[in-house]
Design a protein around this nucleic acid. Structure first.
Length: 413
DNA sequence: AATCCACAGGAAGCCCGGGAAC
DNA sequence: GTTCCCGGGCTTCCTGTGGATT
């Protein structure tokens, strides 16, 4: 056993007490600086415990502002209280970034209501949507009680698939005989209701709650609270929490980012055998988090999108900033020829560029050059510490070979 | 004030693959 | 095996747009 590579480190006392506490998936028992929001939601959702229908709600706020955490916390408390007083309350969470069509949301809801002995899942495609809808109603009624449907990142769903689903879901109570239902939408976009039909707007937005971003002081409180449980006493050097909170506050007050930063900084200190986390570890962690976020995104892009991104990066490599869509398209065509790939239309490239913008890999700002037309100014957002070419080389479906310092495409064998 | 550029982006429709129902 | 349904990728066609130029 002495030869095992883990033998000498398995018993080493690390800087963590419980690393899980510092992950955003951890569900804390207290949510600092969210008392007001909890109070409003609690007041509304208590109706479910009385067997009435709570108002539908929309929660707004930037990512990492605690919307999902607060909702999960309240729903678990609600469910627990329901069990105590023998009222069935059933919260169902759906992330609309992963499940982003009307059909899939309905199928997911329906499948979450299966009894243990049942095995008849609604298939992921094949049924007419109205059949899935009536099956959902049947299953909800069979279970009875109050169903709380939480649609996280609802803005993404609406922008992609329209508001048909919300129209149907907010009208569910008219169809249900025994059960009741309430919808909670969680959105990063304050203006997403502009995309909704006015009827859906008024039905869904019965109660709007805005989650303001955390400021640096509030983030410090959150980090202190979590680090008490998660990190050994005395392991955090002076100013570390303040730095993590400050960096995250600059990025729209994202608590998730702050927790990540603190966790990774501590990991870095541990890895280098230090007994204390210092500011240097935070800076290293910041760099790594940036890399970790972007690398898998680039790697998983479809090959056509990689070619578009390549065209942008190729221009920047030559010192060209603020490239117009047309220029990107020209370079993209060249890349396609070199790679032997088919060339898509410029309309399609416009959409692919918008998607890259949404993914945060580029910024595309619409500008007007007067008589010389209207276009988008495109710049990459990939930090200098990352070599995107390296990542693309590892891609499964294509590779870029380096030839005398120049990049050229070739099929991967 | 009218014109014009270089797109942006919406709408409609085609094609394909996957799965269920008949 | 055929038909129906859904979703995704894509094209074609089209209208809209902001501001420099005429």
């Amino acid at each position: 056993m002495k030869d095992n590579i883990f033998a000498d480190i398995i018993d080493t006392k690390g800087l963590f007490i419980d690393k899980e506490v510092l992950r955003h998936t951890y569900k804390p028992s207290k949510l600092p600086h969210r008392d007001e929001e909890v109070k409003i939601m609690r007041y509304n959702l208590v109706e479910a415990l009385k067997g009435h229908i709570p108002s539908n709600m929309i929660l707004y706020g930037v990512s990492g502002a605690g919307k999902t955490a607060v909702t999960q916390f309240i729903c678990s408390q609600l469910e627990e209280m329901g069990q105590n007083i023998d009222r069935f309350v059933n919260p169902v969470f759906i992330n609309c970034r992963k499940i982003d069509t009307q059909y899939r949301v309905l199928a997911h809801l329906g499948n979450s209501l299966l009894e243990d002995y049942e095995n008849d899942d609604i298939p992921f495609t094949g049924w007419p949507t109205d059949k899935v809808f009536s099956e959902l109603i049947r299953r909800m009624d069979r279970l009875g009680g109050v169903h709380i449907i939480v649609l996280d990142e609802i803005d993404h769903l609406v922008k992609k698939s329209g508001d048909d689903l919300l129209y149907n879901l907010t009208n569910l109570n008219a169809e249900l005989k025994k059960a009741r239902c309430s919808v909670i939408g969680i959105s990063n976009d304050l203006k997403f209701t502009e995309y909704l039909d006015s009827r859906v707007q008024s039905r869904l937005g019965q109660e709007d709650i805005i989650f303001n971003p955390y400021n640096a002081a509030q983030l410090q409180d959150i980090l202190r609270m979590r680090s008490k449980k998660g990190i050994s006493k005395g392991a955090l050097g002076k100013g570390v929490i303040e730095l993590c909170a400050g960096m995250a506050a600059q990025e729209h007050g994202d608590a998730r980012r702050a927790l990540n930063l603190l966790r990774v900084s501590t990991e870095k200190a541990e890895q280098s055998g230090d007994t204390e986390v210092i500011e240097r570890h935070v800076r290293i962690a910041q760099n790594q988090i940036e890399c970790d976020q972007i690398t898998p995104v680039i790697r998983s892009l479809p090959s056509q999108q990689k070619l578009v991104l390549f065209a942008v990066l190729r221009n920047e490599k030559h010192g060209l900033k603020n490239i117009a869509t047309g220029e990107v398209f020209e370079l993209y065509k060249q890349a396609c020829k070199n790679f032997g790939s088919n060339i898509l239309t410029s309309r399609r490239i416009t959409t692919l560029l918008s998607e890259l913008d949404t993914l945060g890999l580029i910024t595309a700002k619409t500008v007007s050059n007067g008589r010389y037309g209207r276009t988008k100014m495109i710049n990459s957002c990939i930090p200098n510490s990352i070599d995107p070419m390296e990542i693309m080389i590892e891609a499964e479906d294509m590779m870029i070979a380096v030839d005398n310092g120049k990049y050229r495409f070739q099929a991967k064998i």
